[in-house]
Design a protein around this nucleic acid. Structure first.
Length: 153
DNA sequence: GCCAACGTTGGC
DNA sequence: GCCAACGTTGGC
């Protein structure tokens, strides 16, 4: 089993939105970055992912999700009415993919980015999220880092 | 709102 | 293939 981190702006879609979904499950659509897409294609059913709130007053990890369906075409790229429509994605040869995720649990308290940064020179050294200039919205997390982060809860 | 750090686009 | 211009992300 692998571990991941997936970002979302809570104004657009928060962990509470996920909690309100039927079966607390949704498709993680709208990824329009090749590196992030390629990582999503590596995801396997049963993998775990941190839900991360970005671009908000308190960025940080707010809970845990599980991958319940492996990568399949992101149909929102085909629909002109969708925000993430992409004319270059052809239904016969889709450019963008998404996975389905379900909520495992929401943390009682957010694990703020600032708390992660405090460990960036030690236990969380080289974590992708903490790398300077990091902009990836989907990224891998090592088991070592995953376990250490859970101790911050 | 600012700005660093990328990623993408398009002319050559 | 190079690279300047432009757009986006995301913390602060």
């Amino acid at each position: 089993m692998k571990y991941w981190l997936m970002k979302s702006e809570p104004d657009a879609y928060s962990i509470d939105d996920l909690a309100k979904e039927k079966n607390q499950t949704t498709h993680w659509d709208g990824i329009r970055n090749y590196q992030a897409r390629n990582l999503m294609k590596e995801m396997k059913k049963g993998d775990r992912a941190f839900f991360y709130h970005s671009s908000c007053p308190q960025p940080g990890i707010v809970g845990i999700m599980e991958i319940v369906r492996e990568a399949y075409p992101d149909h929102t790229a085909f629909d002109k009415k969708e925000k993430y429509f992409d004319a270059k994605s052809d239904p016969d040869n889709p450019r963008w993919y998404m996975v389905d995720v379900t909520l495992v649990r929401k943390f009682a308290q957010i694990i703020p980015l600032s708390a992660l940064r405090e460990l960036s020179e030690k236990a969380l050294k080289d974590m992708v999220l903490l790398r300077k200039g990091n902009r990836l919205s989907v990224m891998p997390v090592t088991k070592k880092h995953w376990d250490r982060i859970l101790k911050l809860e």
